[in-house]
């Protein structure tokens, strides 16, 4: 029985590239990874938004109206719904002049118990140090 922790670090802004969304969809795929693993083995993902990547977490994205695709905001909410740990860098939110009110913090309307955690970069660094592998998007 073993657990491998994977840290998905999102540092690119939304909609300019596919990367942030692929980070989220790959992290969510951890829900079905057991089909490839032995009994008791598991993958533990953590998603962290840093730098320009924090812009992925803005509320009220209009991706469906504008592009006809599911928004990155919705993918973050789906991550919470499947109990993934989602971190957002506090300093980088401040750097953009944003407050935590501007950030998607929960998915209560979908029935998710998990919440987005706005934390210092030091805390994100600790998560990265405790991960077996880092995946930068």
């Amino acid at each position: 029985m073993a657990t491998t922790k994977l840290a998905f670090i999102v540092q690119r802004p939304p909609y300019k590239s596919e990367n942030p969304k692929l980070a989220l969809t790959h992290a969510i795929a951890s829900q079905s990874v057991e089909i490839y693993l032995s009994d008791g083995d598991m993958v533990e993902p953590v998603i962290a938004f840093i730098g320009d990547g924090v812009l992925n977490c803005l509320k009220n994205q209009k991706a469906m109206e504008t592009y006809g695709i599911i928004s990155t905001e919705n993918h973050i909410k789906n991550s919470l719904l499947v109990d993934l740990k989602v971190l957002v860098c506090k300093e980088d939110i401040a750097r953009f002049g944003l407050s935590e009110d501007a950030i998607v913090l929960d998915a209560e309307e979908m029935g998710a118990d998990m919440k987005v955690q706005v934390v210092s970069f030091d805390e994100i660094t600790k998560e990265m140090e405790s991960a077996n592998h880092l995946l930068f998007f």
């Binding site: 491998t4 990367n19 951890s30 490839y36 083995d41 993958v43 592998h133 995946l135 930068f136 998007f137």
Partner: peptide, 22 residues
């Protein structure tokens, strides 16, 4: 395969090199 294949491959890899997109 679907994306979970990648995570499973990472599970027992000694090293993972992830190269993001453009």
């Amino acid at each position: 395969f679907s994306m979970d294949w990648y995570l499973a491959s990472c599970f027992d890899a000694d090293r993972v090199l992830h190269i993001g997109g453009e």
